[in-house]
């Protein structure tokens, strides 16, 4: 599946662009995406990013995605580290 992953907060420090474009074959659920993306991140990002990834949520424009939730058809996701608004 073709995935566009929007990056926010501290994740912006690990990438040159605000979005990643990834081809992840066989990925259909949020849990499968998380596993595949963690493998990608271990190859491209430092250990600090992996720890942050494990504390982060996956979302669409309107909702957080539970591990069992199928990915949206457009493959557009957001990676949300722990939040600190207000």
């Amino acid at each position: 599946m073709n995935i566009t992953l929007q990056l926010f907060g501290r994740f912006r420090d690990f990438a040159d662009a605000p979005e990643l474009h990834l081809e992840l074959p066989g990925v259909t659920t949020t849990a499968e995406f998380r596993a595949a993306f963690e493998a990608w991140a271990r190859a491209h990002w430092p250990d600090a990013a992996i720890a942050l990834l494990q504390a982060s949520a996956i979302a669409t424009d309107t909702t957080l995605l539970h591990p069992r939730t199928p990915l949206p058809a457009d493959g557009r996701l957001a990676l949300l580290p722990p939040v600190s608004g207000g």
Binding site: A55, S56, A57, A59, H66, R68
Partner: peptide, 19 residues
């Protein structure tokens, strides 16, 4: 960057939270 609070999604079917 502030450490912050992790977000946790609820299961639409059960309402329970998952990682």
């Amino acid at each position: 960057w502030s450490d912050g609070t992790p977000l946790v999604a609820a299961d639409a079917a059960t309402g329970r939270e998952g990682a």
